[in-house]
Design a protein around this nucleic acid. Structure first.
Length: 918
RNA sequence: GGGCAGUUAGCUCAGCGGUAGAGCGGCUCGUUUACACCGAGUUGGUCGGGGGUUCGAUUCCCUCACUGCCCACCA
């Protein structure tokens, strides 16, 4: 036990304890220790991007995980919190490429070539990869760092390949030329989930096309994308639209590219139910190569798909001489100009529409026809059912509906990416000809399903090993979507497909904590992978955090500059303050409006805790003495009862993942109850000469503090650990019971009936203590009314209906900061005009010398009487209503009657007091 | 177009069928045995509008309004 310094210094304390926890291997999970009496608790971290830095979102997310993990340890469970990072394909590649460009090293990654570029990315990863992991340590995260994983670790990569090969062999993975979301900046395909819709102010271009068979007759088309006219291969109308039925089957003259001869620009006018006749003119241009819906129409009518764009979003030769080489947006205005010049432009009108944007590059995506790999999701039914049935629970529950809806409308997942940073697709194409030749070159041991003829006729081999005859085979150049590796996270990190001790002990995991924004990207897919490969759910509970916003409710973003650096907050206020502040303001399922004020509150709370413990230490005496039940005061009993209640509240809140409620309950208990009332009241006993009473008070304090520190530890681990040792609570405890670290101390349980019986804790004690506090409040009110400073010693007179003990009088006197609290006898009559207030024990008087304005005093009491009369009117109105007396439950009626008589009694006393003034 | 949240004190949020709560802020007083990152006191709300159910509604139901988010191939 060492003396607590005057101020809490988070910096050194945090470093000291984190190092100590680690060197004592307190975060280390030991599968061999898992047994019936020591159940496993496990949680896998949502792996942050390897090159990322800590954000407030991470703080929220990981503090929750840390609270869960630390409490589980204290509850005697064997805990695995498995950390790691994600290679984050596009994000990382983009960052590295951009940096190299900025340095002037390259203009495009092609300048380096695949291998050299990947070397650079690995270099970057080595340099920046550890940052976020270090930052998590600063936050206090109790991860098992010995098990840290990266999604491109060799073993992990092998899992990814293995799963690909397996799904390929099951026929769930296929390659085909499909309409995909193309990002012209990253020049890769994206999944539907990586596209975000944004409402845009655009314009609707109305232009005319001539009907070939009826010269001089024109149809008007409304489009938002005039630049794609050269790619049109039909004009479509609704078959039931009376305006246009005559034209179906005829041809239209496509205006662009205008240099082509007219006959080469003839396109059919077709009927398709997809066309809405209420929109625009009811005539639709069909561009199968550049619009998803048009592509479908094209399929239905066997229309050619004319691709008029390069992968980078510039127009190609098919767009015509005027547009070729131009960027798609420049081409749009050029096309409009061209139509105008041709006399075909009718009008342009402003139009709001939704445009899909690439989430990463923040540019409009281009629907594009290209050769990609797709996955038909496996284990869909089981994955849906497990959530629907409640076997796996979502918190808050409403996300289950969102999940179910998505699962019901699953679209095949485009898993190939035209990037370099990622897991290379384990498919090789045969350079020779013929399936037999291909099989022969691979050797006899290749299973049938590893070899397949694809849609476009190419021969593909899929396997873990590259074909030996490398000259005959060429590997697919694409890599896999990042999420195709993330979805294996819960088991690929535990050594799967080996049945490792870790996997056996800790899988399936207990809780998953993540943001709702990745429910489809990650959560849903992990569930499916879990069922497909381990045959069961990967986690039992999913907790969805809110999203952190700034105090105006805007999303945190780099461009807005509204996202504070958590590390700055830690160095300014301490990690515990940050954790507590964020937790206290993050209710279940609600977005969190972040304000530095919250962290300040956390810091203030830590300081309060520190000082309260210092106060205890300054009192000296032996630590954790035995509590003598016979010496307990009502305050002692009161605080023990409040503690018991708080233990229950905190435990229950945590069981239900209501972290802010738990933090709130602790805050209220410690600050408003323990510090404000109990510590203040205890000063009476501590300053007295009765050493037995003094020691007993200290014993109660120690009991309460030791419990509170344990309750607080998951939230604010550093300061609680420091205080645990500073006060010497660790002494004489076995190492695994809190003897070496608070981390291993048992989680407080309710005190229980035996405890209550032994120490004689009764509800009456609480009432009695509250009554005393009411006397104090009444007295302070009197002080206020007569504008007497709180530091001025005063004399009060209490005229109780029943006797108070000497100790009780002492306590009230102390809390009132009174020179004296005189207890008057029943026949005592206050001097005329003495200010007074009502208390549960009877009237409290504040005798003042000569300065009392009787009229003012009467008025003061009159105000109170008026208030009570108002309440009385309300209660009486109820009680006099037939319907209430007959309709309401007897108990409620009784409560109202009781209330009425209470008000009446108070009123009577106040009236008597007022009369005494006249 | 469909779905999900939210609307309670100046601000951020609890409460969710029987006398409206907390923190922050504001105001007043204050170095009284830890703590001014503090203490004491105080101010402040017809609980978004309108219906309904009920003896009774901030709390349950319906409806409207606004705000935010998610999903959706009206060019």
């Amino acid at each position: 036990m060492s003396e607590l310094s005057k101020n809490y210094e988070p910096q050194s304390v945090e470093e000291k304890w984190y190092a100590q926890w680690q060197s004592a291997e307190r975060f280390h999970a030991r599968p061999e220790r898992v047994c019936e009496k020591r159940p496993a608790y496990s949680i896998v971290i949502p792996p942050p991007n390897v090159t990322g830095v800590l954000t407030l979102g991470h703080v929220l997310n990981n503090t929750i995980q840390d609270i869960l993990a630390r409490r589980a340890r204290m509850q005697g469970r064997e805990v695995l919190w498995l950390p790691g990072t994600d290679h984050a394909g596009i994000a990382t590649q983009t960052v590295v490429e951009r940096t190299l460009k900025k340095q002037g090293a390259i203009r495009h990654r092609d300048d380096l070539g695949r291998e050299k570029f990947l070397e650079k990315v690995w270099e970057w990863k080595e340099k920046h990869g550890g940052i976020i992991i270090q930052q998590l340590r600063k936050l206090g995260a109790s991860c098992d760092w010995s098990r840290e994983r990266f999604t491109m670790d060799p073993e992990y990569s092998e899992c990814v390949q293995r799963v690909f090969v397996d799904l390929f062999s099951k026929g769930l993975i296929y390659r085909g030329k499909r309409m995909v979301n193309w990002c012209p900046v990253s020049r890769t395909a994206l999944s539907d989930e990586e596209v975000v819709m944004k409402e845009q102010n655009g314009s609707l271009t109305h232009f005319k096309v001539e009907v070939a068979e009826r010269p001089g007759t024109f149809l008007t088309i409304a489009t938002t994308r005039p630049e794609t006219i050269p790619g049109d291969s039909a004009i479509a109308v609704n078959p039931n639209d009376p305006r246009y039925t005559d034209f179906i089957g005829l041809h239209a003259v496509r205006p662009l590219p205008s240099e082509l001869p007219r006959e080469q620009r003839l396109i059919p006018i077709i009927a398709d139910a997809h066309v809405e006749f209420g929109f625009g003119t009811g005539v639709l241009k069909v561009t199968p190569a550049h619009d998803k819906a048009d592509f479908e129409i094209g399929l239905r009518h066997q229309l050619p798909a004319i691709d008029i764009m390069h992968p980078d979003g510039t127009m190609n030769a098919l767009a015509g001489v005027d547009l070729a080489g131009k960027d798609r947006f420049e081409a749009r205005s050029l096309a409009i100009e061209k139509l105008r010049a041709l006399g075909l432009l009718e009008k342009e009108e402003p139009h709001r529409n939704n445009v899909g944007f690439s989430e990463r590059a923040d540019v409009p995506i281009e629907p594009r026809l290209s050769q990609q790999w797709f996955l038909k999701y496996p284990s869909v039914q089981a994955s849906r059912e497990v959530v629907r049935s409640g076997q796996m629970r979502f918190h808050p529950e409403r996300w289950a509906k969102v999940y179910d809806h998505w699962m019901e409308n699953l679209q095949d997942w485009c898993i190939s990416r035209q990037l370099w940073w990622g897991h290379r697709i384990p498919v090789w194409y045969f350079r020779g000809t013929g399936l037999d030749a291909a099989r022969a070159s691979l050797g006899a041991s290749i299973p049938d399903h590893a070899l397949r003829v694809l849609e476009d006729g190419s021969i593909a081999y899929c396997g873990l090993q590259a074909p030996a005859e490398t000259s005959l085979w060429e590997q697919d150049s694409d890599v896999l979507d990042t999420w195709f590796s993330s979805w294996l996270w819960p088991f690929a990190t535990m050594g799967w497909p080996e049945s490792t001790p870790t996997l056996k002990a800790f899988y399936p995991t207990t809780d998953l904590v993540t943001g709702p924004d990745i429910i489809f990207f990650w959560v849903a897919r992990m569930i499916m992978a879990g069922f497909e490969y381990l045959g069961e759910l990967p986690f039992k509970n999913v907790y969805f955090t809110g999203i952190i916003r700034d105090k105006q409710g805007r999303k945190m973003s780099k461009s807005l500059g509204n996202s504070p650096d958590p590390l700055d907050l830690i160095s300014k206020f301490g990690a515990d303050a940050l954790r507590f502040g964020v937790m206290r303001s993050a209710p279940l399922g609600q977005d969190v409006l972040f304000d530095e004020k919250n962290v300040e509150l956390g810091r203030n709370f830590c300081t309060k805790l520190w000082n309260a413990c210092r106060f205890r230490q300054m009192q000296g005496g032996s630590v954790e003495g035995e509590i003598q039940s016979t010496l307990l005061s009502t305050e002692d009993k009161w605080i023990l009862l409040r503690l018991d209640k708080t233990i229950e509240e905190v435990s229950k809140s945590l069981d239900e993942y209501r972290f802010s409620d738990a933090a709130q309950a602790l805050y209220r208990f410690f600050w408003s109850e323990y510090c404000d009332w109990y510590v203040e009241a205890s000063k009476a006993a501590l300053s007295g000469t009765d050493t037995a009473r003094r020691d007993n008070t200290l014993a109660v304090m120690d009991f309460v503090l030791a419990h509170t520190l344990r309750l607080f530890h998951p939230f604010i681990p550093f300061i609680t650990e420091e205080l645990w040792h500073g006060l010497g609570f660790h002494e004489d405890l076995p190492p695994d019971q809190g003897g070496d670290t608070l981390m291993s101390a048992p989680w407080p349980r309710n005190l229980g009936p035996d405890f209550h019986a032994h120490y004689g804790l009764l509800p009456e004690d609480e009432t009695r203590a509250n009554a005393k506090f009411d006397v104090v409040l009444a007295g302070r009110g009197l002080r206020r009314d007569f504008q007497l400073p709180s530091n001025k010693k005063l004399s009060f007179v209490l005229k109780p209906q029943s006797p108070l003990s000497e100790e009780e009088v002492q306590v009230i006197q102390l809390l009132l900061n009174a020179e004296q609290l005189q207890v008057a006898t029943a026949d005592w009559i206050a001097p005329k005009g003495t200010p007074s207030a009502l208390t549960p024990f009877g009237p409290l008087f504040l005798p003042l010398e000569g300065v009392v304005d009787m009229a003012a005093e009467r008025e003061r009491i009159g105000k109170e009487i008026a208030k009570i009369e108002q309440e009385l009117v309300k209660v009486r109105a109820k009680l006099s209503s037939e319907t209430f007396v007959q309709g309401a439950p007897a108990q409620v009626v009784a409560e109202h009657r009781q209330r009425e008589s209470d008000w009446l009694q108070k009123l009577g006393e106040l009236q008597r007091l007022r009369e005494a003034l006249s």
